[in-house]
Amino acid sequence: MKRKKITVAVTGLNAIDSPGPGVPVIRALKDSTYFDVRIIGLAYESMEPGIYMHDLVSKTYQIPLPSAGKASLLTRLKYIHAQEKIDVIIPNFDAELFNFITLADKLKKEFNIHTFMPSQAQFDERHKANLPEFGKKHGIKIPFSKMVFNVGEIPALKKEFSYPLVVKGKFYDASVAYTPEQAATYFNKIAAKWGLPIIIQEFVIGEELNVTAIGDGMGNTIGAVPMRKQYITDKGKAWSGISIDDEHLMKMTEQLFTSTKWKGGLELEIIKNAKGDYYLIEINPRFPAWVYLAVGCGQNHPEALVKMALGEKVKPYTKYDIGKMFIRYSFDMIVELKEFEKIATMGEL
C-alpha cells in the first residue's frame, strides 16, 4: 500500500530525564504503515534533544513560550506553515494546550492545519483543581483535594487533611509532605515554578497504574493501554514499565470516555489501594512520554490521532499485548557547534 504523505508538526522534543512526549509520538508516527510522515519539530529551548535527531525530525523551529500568548504563537506558526505546509499539529505539553486549543479553529479555517485536541471545557474540567467535581460528575473516585492560594493557609489544612498529603503544581510537580513545615516548603518551591494555585490532595496508599488512551470526541475509546511502572526515577518518572491486564481499569477508562466525550490523547494516573479501590489522581490532557509502549503493544495512538485530525474514520482498537515492557535509556548525541548556533541564533534547524 502506498503511504499517504503528510507533514506533522510536533512539540515536546525535550527527551531529558523528565521527558516530553514529542520524540515517542514522532517514533510512533514514523512506524505508521498508513502515513509517510515528515516531521517538523516545534521547540522552546535550543537544547531539546529532539531538535538534533535528524533521522526523526526533518526541521525544527523555535516557538514562543506559552506565556507570550496566542498572538505570538499564531504569528510564528504562520511563518512556519508558509515554509513547511503543515497538515497536522500535535501539541504535547499541558502548559501550551490553552493557546493551541484557542487557535484550533483559526488554524483550520485560515491555514487548513488540523488538530485533534480536547475542547476548552474538557481541558478545564479535568484540571487538577477541578478534579473532585469531575469525579462527582462522572462517577469516578478521586482523592479529596483543595486549592490553596496562600502559604498562610497551610497550618489550617490539618482540619481537613491528615498527614502525609500531596502538594501539587497546577501543571507539573508533586511532592508528599509529612508535616505542615514540609507542605509550606513544597508550596513555595512549586508555586515559584508553576504559579498558583497549589493543589493539596489526600495521599492514597497503593500501587500507581497508568493508562495511555485516545478518544474520538463522541464518547468512543479508540485505544487504551494500561501500564504499571516498574522502575521510577527520583523525579517520579517511569524508567521502565509493563503493560498489564486489568479489566476494571479498562472499564473505568471506557466509562470516562463515554461520559466526557474526550477528544484526543490523554494519560490517566490511578492509585489502586489494598482493598482494590481505584482512585483517579490525575488526567494529563495529552499523550504520556511512554506512549510508544502502546505502539509496542499493537495500538498506534498517535497514528489514530492524525487520522482523526484529518477527518478519517478510525476503527477502535480491541486488543493489546499484555506483558510488553519499555525500558528507557539515555544516549549522548554528538552535536556540531554550528547546529546549536543555528537554532540558538536563527530559531531554525
Binding site: 501500564m227 516498574q230 498489564i244 491486564d245 486489568d246 499484555i322 506483558g323
Partner: peptide, 18 residues
C-alpha cells in the same frame, strides 16, 4: 487463572505486571 508460567520457572502476573 491468568498467571503465566514458563518452563524456566519465570512466573508473570499480568494483572499487575509483577
Amino acid at each position: 487463572k491468568n498467571l503465566a508460567l514458563s518452563e524456566t520457572g519465570f512466573v508473570f502476573d499480568p494483572s499487575n505486571g509483577n
